[in-house]
């Protein structure tokens, strides 16, 4: 079982050379398989319904064997962008960057500039930090109503990615003599649908904070950027 999952992970990486993988795993040549590759983002109401939770996952398809050695890159800034007036321009950012086993968080704060380049607002923003978790037990820091986590987690994304590739690739891809035209039925084993991301991990950054800190309207738009030090 364990071995087959590792083989699946290897197969995913092989196929990734030819196809971009959903959700955002290995989505583009410049970031595929690198430390700045975003795999997914999530945004949802917290257990405390006055709070909103933002999740950014990077470096997907980490096998269990490689998880202990997986690490955030100290030259990669992960930036949560928040647009609270509907123009798809960031009004606030939350910046996360690791140093020596600690993830530092700055914000939310108005960015110093919009666009593709950022500076870290270490001198002006609210600063928080959490020790980066290395095992299965999550280390969490809570401060002034905000909570922080950084470390490996099970990849929460699920999809029969292999079948999707077979469907959108012309011709017979699985060797049964017919073009694949539909997803496989639910079930277990050959010929049934399976989660291509089962048994793999990602590096997660999770921030929970009061909704009032991100906007006063009915909604906000969010997206996550990774930026590399020049």
């Amino acid at each position: 079982m364990k071995k087959s999952k590792i083989l699946i992970g290897a197969a995913i990486l092989t196929i990734a050379g030819f196809f971009a993988i959903a959700a955002d795993h290995i989505d583009a040549p410049a970031v595929a398989g690198g430390t700045s590759d975003i795999t997914d983002i999530y945004a949802f109401e917290g257990q405390n319904t006055d709070n909103i939770v933002f999740v950014a996952n990077v470096q997907g398809l980490i096998t269990p064997a490689n998880t202990a050695s997986a690490a955030f890159d100290e030259n990669v800034l992960v930036e949560f962008n928040i647009d609270n007036d509907g123009d798809a321009v960031a009004d606030l950012v939350i910046q996360a960057i690791p140093r020596d086993g600690v993830m530092y968080f700055f914000g939310p704060i108005a960015p110093s500039q919009s666009g593709l380049n950022s500076t870290i607002l270490a001198d002006t923003a609210i600063r928080n930090e959490v020790q980066i978790t290395t095992g299965g037990s999550a280390i969490v820091e809570t401060n002034n109503g905000m909570s922080f986590f950084a470390g490996p987690r099970d990849d929460p994304f699920f999809m029969d990615f292999f079948r999707y590739v077979d469907i959108v690739t012309p011709g017979d891809d699985d060797g049964d003599g017919e073009e694949e035209t539909a997803f496989l039925p639910a079930g277990t084993g050959d010929g049934f649908a399976s989660d291509s991301f089962a048994g793999t991990n990602v590096l997660s950054i999770v921030v929970e904070l009061p909704k009032s800190m991100v906007g006063n309207g009915d909604s906000v738009n969010i997206w996550v950027e990774t930026k590399r030090k020049q």
Binding site: A23, D40, N117, S118
Partner: peptide, 13 residues
């Protein structure tokens, strides 16, 4: 330092 954009994501896929 200056950090230059490499990846971004809003909605999945």
């Amino acid at each position: 330092g200056t950090f230059a954009q490499q990846d971004q994501m809003g909605r999945p896929a």
